[in-house]
C-alpha cells in the first residue's frame, strides 16, 4: 500500500487493482450522503418516505420549486448568506493584509507574541462570548442585521486569515522589498504594487477558505438572527422543528444551500485544497 511514490509498470497487478477498487470505495462512501440528498431532492415527499428506499423514480422539480418560491424563502436567505460571506471576506482582507504585512516585513520583538495572541483567540469557544456579544448587539441595534453578522464573521475568521497571509508573505524574498526601497517606493506602494501581486495565489486561497467558512457558519447565524438577516444555515437548521412531510423539501433546500460551495470548489479545486489545509498544500 505504501508503494507510494512511483509505481513502475510491472507493479500494476493484483495490488494495483485492489488499490484502485479501495480508492473508489472510499470515494463512494464519502460521496454517498450527498448523492442521497440530491436523489431525495428530486422525489415527492411520498416517494422520499417510502419504506423501501427508491433509487429509480420519475424525478420532479416540485421540491426545488417549493423551496425557492414558497414564501420567497430561499432567495432571501441566499442573499443574506452571500452578503455576509463575501462582505466579511473583503473586510477581513482589508484588516489583515496590512497587519500581516507589518508583521512579516517589519518584525519587532513583540511580533511573535502578537501573532500567537491573535491566533489564540481561536481557542475561545463561541458560546463563551455569546452573552456579552448578544448584549452589545442588543443595545446597539445590531441583532438580526446583516452588518452585525458580517462583523462577527470577519472577526471569527481573522485569526486564520492573519496566520495564512503572514505565512504567504514570509515566502516572499526580502531582497524584493529592499530593491523596492532603493527604487524609492513608499511602504503603501511597495505593498500594493510589489508584494500583493506576488502573494496573490495565497491570498486567493485564503479568501476562498474564509468565504466558505462564513457561508457554512451556523452558530452565530442561529443565535443572533431571527428572519431579517438569517442565512441559509439558519434556514436549513430551522427544518428540525417543522412538522410532517418535509424531507424532500429539506433536501432540495440543502442542495441549493451547498450548490454555490460545490460549484466554487469545482472551479477552484487547487486553491480550495490549499485553503482548506491552511496553506500546507502548495
Amino acid at each position: 500500500m505504501s508503494q507510494s511514490t512511483k509505481p513502475s509498470a510491472s507493479r500494476i497487478t493484483l495490488g494495483g487493482t485492489l488499490l484502485t477498487l479501495l480508492a473508489y470505495l472510499v470515494a463512494i462512501v464519502m460521496f454517498f450522503p450527498l448523492l442521497w440528498m440530491i436523489l431525495t431532492a428530486f422525489k415527492t415527499e411520498q416517494q422520499a418516505m417510502s419504506i423501501v428506499p427508491q433509487f429509480i423514480f420519475t424525478p420532479t422539480w416540485q421540491s426545488f420549486h417549493d423551496a425557492i418560491f414558497q414564501g420567497s424563502a430561499y432567495t432571501h436567505y441566499a442573499w443574506n448568506s452571500l452578503i455576509t460571506a463575501v462582505g466579511s471576506t473583503f473586510l477581513g482582507l482589508l484588516l489583515t493584509i496590512p497587519a500581516a504585512y507589518a508583521m512579516a516585513f517589519y518584525p519587532s520583538k513583540r511580533t511573535d507574541f502578537t501573532l500567537v495572541w491573535m491566533v489564540s483567540t481561536k481557542f475561545i469557544p463561541a458560546v463563551g462570548v455569546l452573552i456579552p456579544i448578544f448584549l452589545v448587539f442588543r443595545s446597539s441595534g445590531l441583532l438580526d442585521t446583516r452588518f452585525g453578522l458580517l462583523m462577527l464573521y470577519t472577526s471569527m475568521n481573522m485569526p486564520i486569515m492573519i496566520w495564512m497571509i503572514y505565512s504567504y508573505f514570509k515566502e516572499v524574498p526580502k531582497e524584493i522589498i529592499e530593491a523596492a526601497d532603493i527604487d524609492g517606493a513608499g511602504t503603501l506602494q511597495t505593498m500594493l504594487r510589489v508584494i500583493l501581486p506576488l502573494a496573490l495565489p495565497g491570498l486567493t486561497s485564503t479568501a476562498l477558505l474564509v468565504t466558505i467558512l462564513a457561508w457554512n457558519e451556523s452558530f452565530w447565524s442561529i443565535m443572533i438572527t431571527n428572519h431579517n438577516a438569517a442565512t441559509l444555515a439558519t434556514y436549513i437548521a430551522s427544518f428540525r422543528s417543522a412538522e410532517g412531510l418535509y424531507w424532500a423539501k429539506l433536501s432540495a433546500g440543502s442542495v441549493l444551500a451547498s450548490a454555490p460551495i460545490i460549484v466554487l470548489g469545482w472551479c477552484a479545486q487547487r486553491q480550495m485544497v490549499r485553503g482548506l489545509t491552511f496553506g500546507a498544500v502548495k
Binding site: 488499490l19 480508492a23 470515494a27 436549513i236 429539506l250
Partner: peptide, 29 residues
C-alpha cells in the same frame, strides 16, 4: 490518494465534498 490510479482527480474531488459543505446541511442529511 498518493498512489497512482485511474480517476484520481475524481476521487480527490469526491473526498473534498464532506469537508466543504455546511455542517448544518451534513447534519440534516
Amino acid at each position: 490518494l498518493n498512489a497512482n490510479f485511474k480517476g484520481r482527480v475524481w476521487v480527490r474531488a469526491a473526498i473534498l465534498i464532506p469537508w466543504a459543505i455546511p455542517t448544518v446541511v451534513s447534519a440534516q442529511m
